[in-house]
Amino acid sequence: MKWTKKDLLGITGLSKEEILFILDTAESFRDISRRDVKKVPTLRGKTVITLFYEPSTRTRTSFEIAAKRLSADTINIAASTSSYVKGETLKDTAKTLEAMKPDVTIIRHSMPGAPHMLAKIVESSVVNGGDGAHEHPTQALLDLFTMREKKGTLDGLKIAIIGDIIHSRVARSNIFALRHFDTEIICCGPPTMLPPHLEDLGVKPEHSLEKAIRNADVIMTLRIQKERGGVAYIPSIKEYSTMFGLRKEHLSKAKKDVIVMHPGPMNRGIEIMDDVADGTSSVILDQVENGVAVRMAVLYLLLGREA
């Protein structure tokens, strides 16, 4: 298979074959992280910029490690949104960065579409590292990778996504990706946190946690997006936790070999209890490990695209 895309702006726009190609490529890259010499020369001489307008440790670090393990040079730019509102526009920042000739720019931004705007301005590849409530494609890819790794296949899986769906780019990207496969997707949360028209995407909305996870193969819990005003959608964190926090006793309703996922960072004691987060069903740390492999695959494929 050939790769032709310059950018990874979202799961939207990827075919099923392209998604599988990324996952398959990631399989090969994952082994590198398990060796003593955790580096290959593949992207030697390439420059990867991470341009983060939102605070993030894990995604930025994951991309940085991925790039470094491929021998690319990485430069991290943390643009704080406050100084950016006062000063330079994204367009000017993009042009300035472009002048430094990066090969890939990874952008995280609080506003949907910012990566798309960047991609129109710059010639280098752009990877969406999360844009507002829109998409977080590499997170969805690493989630699918982990599901496939643990379950052997994506087809036939029942996946329950629990939490602040309306503000969640992770939920959106996962839904867009999982729709390509024969999966049953249930989104569960208080009605205020489930966006209208979910059914149009083939997703079943559900307000009862217990019903949502019944017979589930995968439970994905999400955090309340405080920075996107998520708190105003529920009376209190405490009440939310009582009704939608995932506890160990819930897991008996799901399939025996259910896996519990969380994109992080977790709010322990709110959407997920300690005994679940640290329990045998949890694959949360596998997600982190797989994230590096998936991001290596993405960087590799974008740079190796057909001219």
Partner: peptide
């Protein structure tokens, strides 16, 4: 052994497929 990641012409390949070592 899959040598794709170590090739000096990795970005000139017809297919970017990487197989497992």
């Amino acid at each position: 052994l899959d040598i794709t990641m170590y090739r000096d012409d990795v970005f000139k390949l017809k297919s970017p497929e990487v197989k497992k070592t």
